[in-house]
């Protein structure tokens, strides 16, 4: 019997044999998009430091990626990554975490990192629910959806993450779903190469928690839902609010060049060193 090795296997720790994700989870797709982006850019894992928080998607880099990985407290990976990047400005520092981690408990760090425009690449896996803790409502849960902590329906409104982070000042913001792995890979590549704060929002299926709460069902039907309900950002101008209500707007929200924090800091230090 012939054996084959996954082309991305070389980027993972060889002694880690299994993942923690449930069958049908979208995390594998996102993880492959990240590693493919690194592979296609011909970067080395030693060029990276990966930082993650708490939640299912925080397990994408840690323990799997064979690189420096920092698995932090809930909500704080961007704060930790900010220190890592300021200490190692020549490395690519990537944060991988979920919507609860990065927009609820850690929301303040997310908007401030975008405002600072520090050169981080943030892959935010948005499954619309707290999955690891058993399916509680999240800031990203659609209004009206019944979850175990919103048994009478989610009464609160929903964060629209990508436009929010674009407004906060990020250099690069893109959103794709796990139905769009190639587009997602392309945006992650751009995010890594962007000198500035880059957010890639990866809308992902959680059939076990979200699929059950929403009656969207299994992974295949959730991916079908993503396919049928995604709208390119370029097409949204002709659509009114009612038409957009249940749609997932995908594409690149921002791609711009602006002053970046670590570059600016280096310039200040050089100036001070040069002066008497």
């Amino acid at each position: 019997m012939s054996t084959s090795t996954h082309p991305l296997k070389k980027y993972t720790r060889s002694h880690i044999m299994r993942t923690t994700t449930c069958p049908g989870c979208g995390i594998g797709t996102v993880s492959q998009a990240i590693l493919r982006a690194i592979d296609e850019l011909e970067l080395d894992m030693d060029d990276f430091v990966f930082v993650s928080g708490i939640g299912c998607s925080a397990w994408i880099p840690s323990p799997f990626y064979n690189a420096d990985t920092l698995h932090t407290t809930h909500g704080r990976p961007i704060a930790y990554a900010t220190g890592v990047k300021l200490g190692l400005p020549d490395k690519h520092v990537m944060v991988v975490s979920g919507d609860g981690d990065l927009t609820a408990i850690g929301g303040n760090h997310l908007i401030h990192a975008a405002r600072r425009n520090i050169d981080l690449t943030v892959v935010l896996v948005n499954n619309g629910i707290y999955a690891m803790t058993g399916g509680q409502t999240a800031p990203t849960t659609p209004r009206g959806l019944t979850t175990i902590t919103s048994p009478h329906g989610t009464l609160e409104h929903t964060f629209d993450i990508s436009p929010m982070i674009a407004a906060a000042g990020a250099s690069f913001v893109a959103r794709w779903t796990t139905y769009h792995p190639r587009q997602m890979t392309r945006s992650i590549k751009k995010g890594i190469q962007k000198k500035g704060f880059a957010l890639i929002e990866a809308v992902s299926q959680c059939p076990v928690q979200y699929g059950r709460a929403s009656n969207l069902g299994d992974a295949v039907s959730m991916l079908t839902y993503f396919k049928d309900n995604s709208v390119r950002i370029s097409k949204t101008q002709k659509m009114d609010a009612a038409e957009l209500q249940s749609k997932i707007v995908v594409g690149e929200f921002v791609d711009t060049e602006k002053a970046e924090l670590t570059t600016e800091l280096a310039q200040v230090k050089n100036k001070l060193r040069a002066s008497p």
């Binding site: 407290t73 220190g83 890592v84 300021l86």
Partner: peptide, 12 residues
């Protein structure tokens, strides 16, 4: 954020 970034910098 202050303590987290300081810990991150120490690891750097």
């Amino acid at each position: 954020s202050a303590i987290c970034s300081a810990i991150g910098a120490s690891w750097a």
